[in-house]
Amino acid sequence: MDGNPTAATPVISVRDLHKWYSGVHALRGVSLDIPHGQALGLVGDNGAGKSTLISILSGLHQADSGEIRVDGDPVRMRGPRDAMNLGIETIYQYNSMVPTMTIARNLFIGREPLKAQVGGFGILDERRMRAESVGAIADVGLHLRSPDALVGELSGGQRQGVAIARALYFKSKVLILDEPTNHLSVKETAKVIDYVRTLSEQGMTCIFISHNLQHVFASCSRIVAMAHGEIVLDKPTGETSLDEVQNVL
């Protein structure tokens, strides 16, 4: 990074990001450095700008001004595919899986292995999709009966597990979890929090977005709070408290 060549380059570095939505100034100059392997908790009320920031980092929207660097290189993301190619994978609270499709099909949506292809279109390698999805799911400690089961038949926690397995399978560097514990039972919430902890121990960078401060404190080593489109608090989890965070929100 400019200025401090001795520190390790952050995996994501954001400088002075601005975004307007139909007249609303949703992001007002956000800057943030996220080192490799950190589990960062992003908190804030509805409309605080955290969803805006996340949708820009996952390629769904583009910032109006500001700079994003990934591993030190300035990047322009025009769509979710660009973000995925840079190793940034986003898991949404409920919309990262197609319930009417099988686990194997879901794991490879948009990145299907092909047996033969012409101009980007081709025949699916279904044998490989099945075999590798079984492996990928076992890697996150999930035991599902068959890769041919429909995702709609899985519990919310299992779905998040499959989504995390997908991110790991495609060797993502950064995992953005957008409200992953919404609508989950207590037991399944614990499981997701466990995933986040384990992943950052294994060197994966995680950005965990939640309304629920307890969940964030339980899984993250750094807390970033946003309000009115700005970062209002940025501290290691050990140096702040639920009360302090609640007060700035």
Partner: peptide, 15 residues
């Protein structure tokens, strides 16, 4: 199938 099955997921996966 993904587009018809759940549009937001298909979009999020870059389809």
């Amino acid at each position: 199938r993904a587009t018809g099955g759940f549009l937001p997921a298909a979009q999020a996966m870059g389809i």
